[in-house]
Write a protein that binds this DNA or RNA. Structure first.
Lengths: 370, 370
DNA sequence: TTGAAAGCGGTACCAC
DNA sequence: GTGGTACCGCTTTCAA
């Protein structure tokens, strides 16, 4: 069987829009394609200095950018990592992403960030896309479960993937001791003297939220405090939902003196709700958040919160992923423990019994009798 | 010249880690590769119903995911957009990114987000990466100029690229009337009666910041207000820098009664600085921000700011990019005008003359004599 | 309707 | 040290 004569396969003319190919560089430098490849990839013991220089010159002149697709196709590696985040507006991911990014770059990986907006369908979509793009590894930054099947496949197929926070799928994970975090947050309030503590929680589909809840509950129970059903409300971790929920909590007949929020964004909105109702924080109401996002310390009052080393968590996730890729065995589970950061949004409960607050009142009625 | 006999080129056995290829699907379905391709791509007038079914079944059973690299290599299109953002922690980009993402997905494009952290070198790096990955288009979300050369190349090479906000490179752009925005922000303060207005600005390398500055200055000038040199300070748009700068402003001998911040994050930090010094906002100090980030309305006091339709800006950017790709001629310049959103951080200036504030004092000395 | 095979732009093995 | 070329996985003519 004969291959038909090829008509100048590599070096044919380029219509202006088309990217330059290695063949054109070769032709311009008057060397073979193989030589160009060797020069550009710095193959050890490669090419003589004369040709090398010619190649470099030609590449520069043509502004040659190698086609990563072609290279990856052959090498079966893309030097690319995919990162799935649930909500790009949540500063939680900003810190994590920075950590991942720094490590990735240092190891020569590009990072493909995908924002799923907490929509399982979108998440499923992006997992497919990432697989088809043949990213070398996938980091799953958070919640949203698109039919566990998608994760299962990653696992079965041996596609390196690491989770952050969640651990509801059998994949390597960066773990957060949310149980302890929740416990500490609640205990902090209890120690301050609070006995009427409500919870502004998040979606219970998230293992992180589940654990925080369990931590809260455990602490409450340890001190014999009850938790009425209507003092547990679930938002979506974004501030808008918390504003409404907090208002409901604060205008109820029996009003809590403290609120545990599932994250900082919700805590901030809770404080806003309190202010709108004429309640002062922390004098009338204590609030503690979770995550310690950047803006937490710039609020007034500055937010008391359970701090998470977001950047370092990102670093750990990326390192785990890269270790997985390299096949280097190592600890597949990094643990991080939230740390209580006491600022200004918590204090002792008000001494005087409360009075019911009317929704949306001005600062005139502070809800205190004295 | 003879090509050596190929040894079962397509359907050879797969080591478990390797992704399934089209050849394996073909073999399992007992059809040719071409047929599989046709079925999977829904080629009109393609394949008979019997084979079609067989192919689909085989693909499903093998959990086949086509190799996007191979496809793109052939098609010379990746159906992928690249997005460069300057600071993933800046909520400004959250809104924009959502808009871009929604439009992209709707048009079948995957989005490759890259965070440059305002580092020109990183930006340059990512532009290269994006080019090598052969993304179909690039959206440049903000500042940072890695030697204009990189942009120039995009332009010269005809690589579809669109800018958001900035316009210092000859590329299609989503434009923001920052000049007018700055003017309105300043005018708002002037109308309230302020005559001592300071500016907490950002990096002057950004055209957006430049224009906002010009707008401020113009308004001040129109009302015959002077702007002492030491009342113009430059931060990096992140809150940490603003905290320091604001403190310097507020502890100077002659203290402004209002501050124009270059963005909301800096405005928030400015308010924090004021509170730390025992100044009340807006009674002692008015602050106006820029961007209207999500949390702006949850602050206490809620932030008065120049609102930008971030989501719609993202939509416009993505649509422009996609239009460019399709070759559909259309308006290459969408304009957006910031809109004054008056909330609680601005009010009339204090009536009584100020007294110098000592740095870091408690709330005891309010800086008012009466 | 179906299959064979020529590339897409690289890499890396094999000769010389 | 240098060049020739098979091959990566897919799409898309071209023939049958």
């Amino acid at each position: 069987m004969r291959t038909g004569k090829r008509h100048s396969p590599r070096g044919r003319k380029r219509s202006p829009g088309e990217p330059v190919t290695i063949g054109e560089v070769a032709r311009r430098a008057g060397v073979s394609i193989a030589t160009v490849s060797r020069v550009l990839n710095n193959v050890p013991r490669g090419v003589g200095p004369v040709l090398r220089k010619r190649v470099l010159k030609a590449a520069r002149e043509l502004d040659y950018h190698p086609n990563a697709l072609a290279r990856s196709l052959h090498q079966k590696r893309t030097h690319t990592l995919g990162l799935l985040i649930t909500d790009i507006a949540n500063p939680y991911y900003a810190g994590i992403t920075r950590g991942i990014e720094d490590v990735s770059r240092r190891h020569g990986y590009a990072l493909f960030i995908c924002n799923t907006d907490r929509d399982p369908a979108t998440m499923a979509h992006y997992i497919e896309v990432l697989r088809e793009q043949r990213v070398d590894g996938i980091i799953i930054g958070g919640g949203g479960t698109p039919g566990r099947r998608h994760f299962q496949t990653l696992h079965d197929r041996g596609i390196p993937a690491v989770l952050i926070g969640r651990y509801d799928v059998p994949l390597p994970a960066v773990r957060i001791d949310n149980l302890k975090g929740g416990w500490e947050a609640a205990t902090h309030l209890i120690r301050l003297g609070h006995r009427r503590i409500a919870i502004l929680s998040g979606p219970m589909t998230s293992t992180s939220i589940q654990d925080r809840m369990r931590g809260y509950r455990r602490a409450l129970k340890e001190h014999g405090l009850s938790l009425p059903k209507d003092w547990v409300l679930h938002g979506d971790l974004r501030p808008a939902s918390a504003l409404q929920l907090a208002e409901r909590l604060l205008t109820a007949r029996r009003r809590p003196t403290a609120i545990l929020a599932a994250n900082d964004q919700m805590a901030i909105a809770t404080i806003r709700a309190a202010h709108q109702l004429g309640l002062r924080v922390p004098e009338d109401l204590s609030v503690v958040g979770f995550d310690n996002i950047e803006l937490a310390s710039y609020m007034s009052p500055a937010l008391t919160t359970m701090g998470l080393p977001l950047y370092r968590m990102g670093v750990a996730a990326a390192e785990t992923a890269i270790r997985l890729l390299a096949g280097t065995p190592g600890n597949e589970e990094a643990w991080f423990t939230p740390e209580l950061i006491v600022r200004e949004s918590t204090g002792p409960p008000p001494v005087v019994a409360d009075r019911t607050i009317q929704p949306r009142q001005g600062p005139g009625s502070k809800g205190r009798d004295a």
